[in-house]
């Protein structure tokens, strides 16, 4: 694949814990405007790779590029500034804040009010707060959950929490969205809604990388799939190819 088309390139990434190579020499690209899925049985190294990409883990070898920039020297809190946003597998909403406040947290990095503006509630702070609130509300509206804005996370159903997390991730209008098992814990109708939501996000020119166990969702929504097993990439290609790939079947069914 041409590197120019790629929004993110993962090149020969290796990460070991003790003697175990959780991610072993994995390379692939995510094209601009693509929905890419990362699949594999438990312990395949998907989450480790995800944590390497989001800088929560440091990698042993290899490189990750985002829009041509080497991500080596970026800190985990600087990714959002590059336009990489994410959701979490285990919901990471803050319980003591309302839904809209949670989504406003997603706009934090774009707010320019400094601590002096905040302490004295200067006009700059007021303006930034209003703008953040507007953006957060837009984001909720986009996902059609604006009626939950003033509720607290514990007052809304689980499926909605997932959507709130997405609204928070989309608040800054990122170039790339990382979804960590978005369908985990959702029932069928919620998963269908999620599928539609993912497409609607993609229509906004957001490239998406998702880790997912729900094969139905993965096969229906992704343009390209990377399959991993025991830390290695075992196959990459469109859903139709992955579905019939022997190595993938072996990894899942142990034939």
């Amino acid at each position: 694949m041409d590197k120019v088309d790629a929004i993110m390139s993962i090149e020969n990434v290796t990460k070991s814990f003790g003697g175990i190579k959780a991610v072993n020499n994995v390379s692939f690209h995510i094209k601009k405007g693509e929905i890419k899925a990362l699949i594999g049985p438990n312990g395949a190294g998907k989450t480790t790779l995800f944590n390497v990409i989001t800088k929560l883990y440091s990698k042993d070898e290899g490189k990750v590029f985002f829009l041509g920039k080497d991500m080596e020297n970026y800190k985990p809190y600087e990714l959002i500034g590059l336009g990489i946003s994410r959701t979490f597998q285990n919901i990471q909403l803050i319980d003591e804040m309302t839904v809209i406040e949670n989504v406003m947290l997603g706009y934090h990095s774009k707010m320019r009010a400094n601590v002096a503006d905040a302490f004295f509630h200067l006009p700059k702070n007021k303006k930034a707060e209003n703008e953040a609130k507007e953006m957060a509300f837009e984001s909720l509206k986009f996902l059609k959950i604006e009626d939950t804005a003033n509720k607290f996370p514990h007052e809304i159903p689980f499926g909605y929490k997932r959507l709130v997390e997405m609204a928070r991730a989309l608040c800054i209008q990122p170039y790339m969205l990382l979804l960590d098992e978005p369908a985990a814990g959702l029932n069928e109708s919620e998963t269908n809604r999620l599928l539609k939501t993912i497409f609607r996000i993609w229509e906004q020119n957001v490239s998406i990388l998702l880790i997912e166990h729900d094969m139905n969702l993965v096969m229906n929504c992704s343009h390209s799939i990377v399959a991993m097993d025991e830390g290695r990439k075992i196959a990459e290609g469109p859903p139709s190819y992955i579905q019939n790939n022997e190595d993938v079947l072996k990894a899942y069914f142990g034939k």
């Binding site: 989001t54 929560l56 800190k75 985990p76 809190y77 600087e78 990714l79 959002i80 500034g81 946003s85 994410r86 979490f88 990471q92 909403l93 803050i94 319980d95 003591e96 804040m97 406040e101 406003m104 947290l105 997603g106 706009y107 934090h108 990095s109 707010m111 009010a113 601590v115 503006d117 905040a118 302490f119 004295f120 509630h121 702070n125 930034a128 707060e129 953040a132 928070r168």
Partner: peptide, 27 residues
């Protein structure tokens, strides 16, 4: 005032969901 600004939200995130704080740009 501080708590009702973006910093307040950041601190609440740090308190209970540190990974979310990182993900949304909080040093």
């Amino acid at each position: 005032n501080l708590v009702e600004s973006r910093f307040g939200r950041a601190y609440k995130a740090i308190k209970s969901k540190e990974n979310a704080a990182y993900a949304f740009g909080v040093n």
